[in-house]
């Protein structure tokens, strides 16, 4: 979402920059121009928002219209009204709510445990260069390994229940998190360690008071990627074999050719993904604020 915001912002600013050289001669005009620029920015932002809403409405209205008059085959494309209807039925009479809880549950559990374990693993590399040196190539191999391909093995190992999905989500996040934290550890200013030692600090104190807070931004930066990875892990786990979950619902709907229900699943997952992303942004903000408290 942020990337989109930035894009439209940059796109909107560029024409103004092109105009500015014309007015450069007159200082007064320029100061008025910057004032106007601010005003225009506000107006532009409002226009962008209105434009977005309009485009959204057009897309859905067009979709609805074209499937009704037969330009798009409603068998494949369904239609917004059908999808809404199906979603309502699934919510009130079906298992959609339970599926959402199931999928988000395994995602969040995998995300939290994976990120924490990974962060601790990455941070632990500070304690010994030998240990870090031995581990590094394995970390890189694990990172390159397509974890999703392990799905079938995990289902065999951990069963078709909740646990195997959480494990897959965990595996998806643990390595990125470890690599990020290790990146932070490697970048610690050695002069800060010297300072701590000169103040009589033990290694444990150097670790908790310098290495951990120093690496926090690196760990936090892995959160956004990790939440998406964890969700992908959970869904693929459900695709492979599951009794519940939104992923299972989509696979099931596909096999019985219930296209409406497939679309419901896709939209539910999109909304879930967005909500979790926002949740992570809130978590990031909270963690950044806590940084000082954590470290002291």
């Amino acid at each position: 979402m942020d990337a989109y915001n930035q894009e439209s912002y940059c796109g909107a600013v560029r024409p103004a920059e092109r105009e500015s050289p014309k007015k450069e001669e007159d200082d007064a005009a320029r100061s008025i121009e910057t004032y106007d620029g601010e005003l225009q920015d506000k107006k532009r932002r409002r226009r962008v928002l209105a434009g977005r809403i309009l485009v959204g409405i057009f897309l859905f209205a067009g979709w609805e219209l074209f499937t009704r008059i037969g330009w798009m085959d409603p068998y494949y494309w369904s239609s917004p009204s059908e999808i809404l209807k199906t979603a309502w039925v699934q919510l009130t009479e079906g298992t959609l709510l339970r599926d959402i809880v199931y999928t988000s549950g395994s995602t969040v559990i995998g995300f939290v445990t994976g990120t924490l374990t990974g962060a601790l693993l990455g941070l632990s590399f500070w304690w010994s260069k030998t240990y870090a040196g031995i581990s590094e190539p394995f970390l890189i191999i694990l990172n390159a390994l397509p974890k999703l391909a392990l799905g079938p093995v995990l289902v065999i190992l951990f069963g078709i229940g909740f646990f195997s999905k959480a494990v897959l989500a965990f595996l998806m996040t643990v390595v990125t998190s470890a690599i990020s934290a290790y990146g932070g550890v490697k970048s610690v200013d050695p002069a800060l360690e010297t300072l701590m030692v000169s103040l009589g600090a033990k290694r444990r104190q150097v670790f908790t008071k310098v290495v951990v807070p120093w690496s926090m931004p690196w760990i936090i930066s892995s959160l956004r990627i990790n939440i998406a990875l964890a969700l992908a892990g959970s869904i693929v786990g459900e695709f492979i074999s599951s009794e519940q979950g939104v992923g299972r619902m989509i696979i099931y709907a596909g096999t019985i050719l219930d296209i409406n229900l497939v679309w419901v699943g896709v939209f539910v997952l999109s909304i879930l993904s967005m909500l979790m992303y926002w949740g992570v942004i809130l978590l990031e903000k909270w963690l950044s604020k806590r940084l000082a408290i954590i470290s002291s």
Partner: peptide, 21 residues
């Protein structure tokens, strides 16, 4: 280490701590 007070070239204040801390 720690028997004398040592101030290094850079101030080396920890950026996530307040001046007091």
């Amino acid at each position: 280490a720690g028997t004398v007070g040592y101030m290094l070239q850079k101030d080396l204040l920890l950026p996530w701590r307040t001046i007091l801390d």
